[in-house]
């Protein structure tokens, strides 16, 4: 016991010593000038899109010789608040945040505002608040509406009435709500062509998506139109389709018109292989560049709009060749 007590006392002593000498919180440029540091806090890195966004931000910051500190909250809003406060403690010059949702990020924005540190939200905006931030977001509803409109056109060309399934995301996520609304808006007025027979709540969970689509196919074996709110759910959907022998290429008998959102590597491969009709691509490079630029502008005191919209684009069989260089999933796939 004596030894342990001594060890604890020794640790305390070291702690006191190091506590007195507070190290520099940011990096320094080689010429001695203080290098700008940006804290990048992501809610999760569990899907390709977030990893691509993270890498794109990293690249943009490094182009401008800005140092980056990172944190990932593992989908825990309380942990993310701690991480953002940690950035503030370190004295970062700006924060780029991917929040868990539109509401729990408000205390984080407030904390940054109080510390007079500019904060930019990447891909997910905050709800209405007096706290000041700028968000770079895709127009989820509009881009989904355009994607689904393309799918409806394909259905119209085939001629018969199609039975549709929409795989919804986590409806606590404002992006998922936008995509649902975009889908419904595209279907409205086209009920003579499309009958929605199932709305599958995936909660951004692949197992739930797989089970939901499989159940829908069981109840309606003639389903021939599926839209997923995110491309990362395609493996679950194709698995359910393969199980009933319905995973067919465009033009083959029994093909299910497929559409998605995000523009990931799986979707790109499915487009190339001729299984996927269309997907709405979030322009991750535009979003990363805009996020970094917004931080710089905010530091310079410029007033920015609350939302900077990423227009995105729809990629389909007709424009695959010319649009794929802008598709982040295509670039990931090509890099291997």
């Amino acid at each position: 016991m004596k030894t342990i007590r001594h060890a604890i006392l020794a640790s305390f002593s070291i702690l006191c010593l190091v506590g007195c000498s507070k190290p520099d919180s940011t990096g320094n440029a080689p010429n001695g000038a203080r290098k700008i540091t940006v804290g990048v806090a992501f809610e999760t890195l569990q899907t390709e899109y977030w990893v691509a966004g993270f890498e794109a931000i990293k690249t943009e910051l490094s182009k401008l010789d800005i140092a980056m500190v990172e944190a990932v909250a593992d989908s825990d809003a309380s942990r993310q608040l701690q991480q953002v406060k940690g950035f503030i403690t370190r004295g970062v010059d700006g924060i780029i945040l991917v929040p868990k949702d539109a509401k729990t990020c408000i205390p984080m924005i407030r904390a940054a505002n109080e510390a007079q540190i500019p904060i930019v939200l990447f891909n997910r905006p905050a709800d209405k608040t007096d706290a000041i931030s700028t968000a770079i977001v895709a127009d989820n509803a509009k881009l989904t509406q355009e994607t689904v409109a393309y799918m409806v056109d394909q259905a119209r060309k085939i001629g018969s009435k199609h039975k549709a399934v929409v795989v919804l995301g986590d409806l606590g996520d404002i992006n998922a709500i936008g995509r649902r609304d975009g889908f419904e808006a595209a279907i409205k007025g086209n009920e003579n062509i499309i009958e929605v027979v199932s709305r599958v709540p995936s909660e951004w969970n692949q197992e739930k998506a797989q089970a939901g689509v499989a159940n829908a196919l069981q109840a309606n074996p003639d389903i021939d139109f599926i839209f997923t709110s995110s491309d990362f759910l395609f493996p679950s959907i194709t698995s359910a389709l393969k199980a009933v022998g319905r995973y067919k290429k465009i033009g083959e008998k029994g093909h299910v018109i497929l559409g998605g959102f995000d523009g990931d590597a799986t979707a790109y491969q499915m487009l190339v292989d001729g299984y996927l009709d269309a997907t709405g691509v979030q322009d991750v490079y535009f979003e990363a560049k805009s996020a970094v630029q917004a931080l710089i502008d905010m530091r310079e005191g410029k007033k920015l709009p609350q939302l900077i919209i990423d227009p995105g684009f729809v990629i389909h069989q007709g424009n695959l060749k010319e649009s794929s260089p802008r598709m982040w999933g295509a670039n990931i796939k090509k890099k291997g």
Binding site: L15, K22, S78, R79, K85, G86, T89
Partner: peptide, 27 residues
């Protein structure tokens, strides 16, 4: 815990600052 703090503090900016300790407490 104390050993961890003692070992990491020299390399970890702001680990033992008051603001960070309050931040840790809040979580």
């Amino acid at each position: 815990t104390l050993l961890l703090v003692a070992l990491l503090a020299p390399f970890t900016p702001g680990l033992v600052s008051i603001a960070n300790l309050l931040n840790i407490a809040g979580y």
